[in-house]
Computed example of a mutant assay.
Amino acid sequence: MASYIMISIIILVALFISEITSRISSEPIFDENYGVIWGYTHVENHASEVQIYLDKSSGAGFESKQSYGSGFFTMQIKLPDKDSGGVVTAFYLTSVEDGNRDELDFEFLGNREGKPYTLQTNVFAQGIGNREHRIYLWFDPTADFHTYKILWNQHHIVFFADNIPIRYFKNNINFGVGYPSKPMKIEASIWDGSDWATDGGQTKVDWNHAPFRAYFKGFNIDGCQIDKNSGTIEPCNSDKYWWNSKRYWELDPTEQEAYNIVKHHYVTYDYCTDKQNHPVTPPECSQQ
Rank of each mutant, 00 (worst) to 15 (best):
I5Y: 04
M6A: 07
I7D: 02
S8T: 03
S8P: 01
L15V: 02
S22M: 05
S25Q: 01
E27N: 12
E32V: 03
V36C: 03
E44P: 08
E49F: 10
Q51P: 10
Y53E: 09
L54Y: 07
D55K: 12
K56L: 15
G59E: 14
F62S: 05
S64C: 14
S64W: 14
K65W: 10
S67F: 07
S70T: 14
T74K: 10
T74E: 06
D83V: 00
D83E: 02
A90H: 09
D98S: 12
N100A: 14
E103T: 01
D105I: 04
L109N: 00
G110Y: 12
N111I: 10
K115Q: 04
K115T: 09
Y117N: 04
L119I: 02
T121G: 00
N122W: 11
V123F: 00
I128S: 10
N130G: 12
N130F: 07
H133Q: 15
R134D: 05
I135H: 00
Y136D: 12
W138Q: 07
D140W: 02
T142G: 03
T142W: 01
A143R: 08
A143P: 10
D144S: 09
H146C: 08
T147H: 07
K149M: 14
W152H: 10
W152S: 11
W152V: 12
N153S: 07
Q154V: 14
H155L: 11
H155P: 11
K170E: 07
N171C: 07
N172T: 15
F175K: 04
G178N: 12
Y179L: 15
P180Q: 05
S181Q: 10
P183G: 06
M184H: 03
S189C: 04
W191C: 13
W191K: 15
D192T: 03
G193F: 01
D199H: 13
D199V: 06
G200F: 08
T203H: 01
V205R: 07
D206C: 06
W207H: 11
W207P: 08
H209R: 04
A214Y: 00
F216L: 02
G218N: 13
G218C: 14
N220G: 13
D222V: 05
T232I: 12
I233R: 08
E234W: 13
D239G: 14
K240R: 06
W243T: 03
S245C: 09
R247P: 05
A258D: 03
I261K: 04
V262H: 07
V262K: 02
Y269E: 01
C272W: 08
T273A: 12
T273I: 06
K275C: 04
Q276N: 04
H278R: 05
T281M: 11
P282A: 03
P282Q: 12
E284F: 04
E284D: 15
Q287V: 08
Q287K: 09
Q287P: 10
